[in-house]
Design a protein around this nucleic acid. Sequence first.
DNA 1: GAGTTTGAAACT
DNA 2: CAGTTTCAAACTC
Length: 767
Amino acid sequence: MDVVSPELNSHLPDEIMDIEAIEDVPHSQSEPSDDISVPMETDTPVAAENLSLCSSSSTEFTQNLTTSTTTDSTFNSLTGTSVSTSGLQKLTAPFTISPANHQIILNKLASSQATEAAKSAGIQPQVIKQEGQKLLVTTIGKSGQPIVLQLPQTASKPGISQMPGDAKSQTPQFKVVTISGRSELKPVVGSAGNQVATLQAQQLKTVQISKKTPTSSAAPIKFIITKTVNSKGLSPQTSVSPVIAGRVLTQNSPVMPPRTITLSEPHNTSIQSIPGKKIAISPLKTPSKVTVVSVASPTSNSSQKSVALPVNVALSQQILTVQQPASVSPVKVATGQTTAQNIKPVQSVSVGGVSGSQFKTIIPLASQPNVQQIQVPGSRFHYVRLVTATTASSTVQPSGASTSSIQTAKPVVVGAGTVRMSVPIVPAQTIKQVAPKPLTPATVVTTTQTQQRLIMPATPLPQIQPNFTNLPPGTVLAPAPGGGNMGYAVVPAQYVTQIQQPPFVTLASSSSFPPSAGVQSQSRLPLNGMTAAETTPRPRKPCNCTKSQCLKLYCDCFANGEFCNNCNCNNCFNNLEHETERLKAIKTCLDRNPEAFKPKIGKGKEGESDRRHSKGCNCKRSGCLKNYCECYEAKIMCSSICKCIGCKNFEESPERKTLMHLADAAEVRVQQQTAAKTKLSSQISDLLTRTTPVLTSGAGRLPYTFVTKEVLEATCECLLEQAKKAEQTHQPQAEAERLILEEFGHCLMRIISSAGKAKADCASINC
DNA sequence: GAGTTTGAAACT
DNA sequence: CAGTTTCAAACTC
C-alpha cells in the first residue's frame, strides 16, 4: 500500500534529488527466504531493504509534484519547494535528503533531525541537489501507486553522482524508489509545468543518496521513507523497474514555505533486506517525521527492478509522520479547487486512485487528541491510527510565504501537527482481498492536533482492500487504482479506528467515542496460502485474558497485532491508552522471537504448496485432532516438523477422516437446516404476501381466526361435495382432483374475502 | 457456568 | 536447550 499523507503529497518538494547511494547501501542484504521476520512497530533491525514504493499493479494514479526551483541555501540538501498534489494542493517546502535513514524528510524548520540522525548513524549527511532530477517513488499495493517527486528539469546537478548514462539525456531524470516488487507500474513523469508525462523506463534512475553534507532543515515536516519491501529475490542493487506508475507532485505555488525532504540512510548498522512482501516499519520517535511506508506487493519474483534503499527500521521510529505546527503552520497547501476558501486548518488527503484529485479529501483538523483505532482487515496490525502528538509545536515557524499561500483559492493547511504513521510490518501473505466495509455514516474524523500519528498496516496490504471511498469527509483511505490496495491511508488525526476484519472500516469521531473507549474491531490475519474463502474475514473471539494484560502472546488479540476490542479481558493494556507498554511488549516479544508476529501457518518447503505450521505443534494428548492443536485448528495436517505425540492429524489417519466426515456432515446438516429455515420463512412470507395483500398492506394482518373449525368443516364439505360430484359423473381421477382443488381454491378465496371484508368493517366501525 | 484439559508461551 | 510454570483457549460436564 502506499501510504502517503495528503499533506505529504502536498508538501513534497519538487526537487528531490540526488539521493545518492541508495543503491549503494552497503548494509542491505537480501534474504533468500520469503518469510522473514516481520518487524512490527518495534525497532527490529529489519533494516535495510530495497525501498521500493512501487506496488504491483499498474497505476494510473499520478500526482504531480512539480518542483519549483526554489532552493534553500540554508539547507545543503536539495531544496524542494512548492508542491501541489494533483494540482489541488500547493506546497512549498525545501527538502533535504539524508542518506542516514533513507528517509525523505520534509522539514520546515528544523534542521536537523535527519542530519543528526545521519550523524548518529555515523554517516555524514549529504545535501542532495536535485536540479533536473526527479524522484519517483512508487507505492505499495497491487495497483501500486508510485509517487513521483519531480525535480527541476534543469540538467545540471552539481555535487551529485549520477549513474553512468544518466547525464546524457536531457530528459527529466527520475530517481525511483520502489518499495514493492511489482513491475506493472506505469511510468509517469511529471513535468515542471505541472504536466504529467509518462515516464520512460529509460529515464528512470536509481535513487542515490548522497552522503555529503548534512542537511539542516528548519522545516518541521519530514517525509521519511523508512520501509522497503523487497520482492523475493530483489536485490538492493537492482535498478529501477522500467515501468513505473508515477505519482507526480506538481509545484504550484512558489510562495510556499520551504520544506525539506530528506532521504536518509538507516541508522542501523545491521540491515536486513526484507524480502518482498514484508515491510518492517518501526514506530517513529520524532513527531515531526513523515514516513512513507509501502506495503509489499504480493509475491513477486517480479522482474521489476527497484532501487535498493536501505531503510531504517528502528523500533522507535514512526512510520509516517507529518509534522506541522497546528495553528501557525507555515505550510499551507493550496488546492486547485476554487470552491473552498478560507478554511480552518485541515488536512487534505488525496486518495490514490484513479486520479489523486478525485479522492482528495480535506480533513478539518480537530483539536481533540482523541485517538481511535483502525484495524485493517487482512493485516496483522491492521490498524490505522492517528494520534496527536505534542512535540510539533516547537517546530512552528512562521513564514510569510505560508501566509500568502493561505490566500489561495482553496488553501489547505496541512495538519497542524505531526502525523505519525506506524506500520507494523508483517510479511505479506497470500493475497486475499477483503472487501472493505463502508464506513459507518456516523464516522467523522476531525482533528486539529498539532501532531498526528497514523498507524497503518504494513503487511499484507495487498490482501486488504478496504472500501475507503466510502470514508467520510476528512478521511482518506484510497485504494490504489486498478483494484489496488490501499493507496493511501491518511486519516485525520487523533482517531484510531480499527477496521473490522470483514471489510469494515470504521472511523468514529472522537466525540462519539471517547478515547478511553476507543472502538476497536478485531480482524484476523489471513493465513498464508489460504484460499480466499478460507481467509474470509471472520470476527475473532474476544479474549479473556486476566493476567497477561493482553501484552503477551497468550492473548490472541495481541498475538494477531490487534487491539483488544469488546473483549472480556481484565487489566488490558493492549490498547492505545497503554501504547508505551504495548510497544515495549511487542519489542520484548520480538526480541524473544523475531517471528513472533508472523503467521504461524505458511507455505511449506520449496515446492510445497500446502500450508503448514511454521514451527509445528507439540501435542501430546489431543492426538492433534482437537483445537488445542494449532495445526488442526488451522485445518492443516501435521508435518514433519511437528513434535507431536500420537498424532492422528495426517492424511491417511482414519480418525482424522472420520472426524472430517463428521464435521462435514454436521456442516451439511447445519447448512441444510439453515436453508430449510430460510426457504420456509421465505415461503411463509411469500404466502402471506400473496394471499393477504390487502390486509397486509393496510393496518394489519388478516385475522386468521377466520379459519375456524366451522370454516374448515364447511370447506371440507365443499371439497367432499366436489368429490362426490365427480364420482357421480364418473370423472377420471385426475379430473376429480382438479375439481377438488379448484373448489379448494374457491373456498380459500371466499375465506380471504370474508376475512378482509370483516376486517374492513371492523376498521370502519372502530373509526 | 464452573471446572478440567491442553499446549503454547513464558520463564528458569 | 530442556524442564517447569504460566496462561488462556478448548473442552467437558
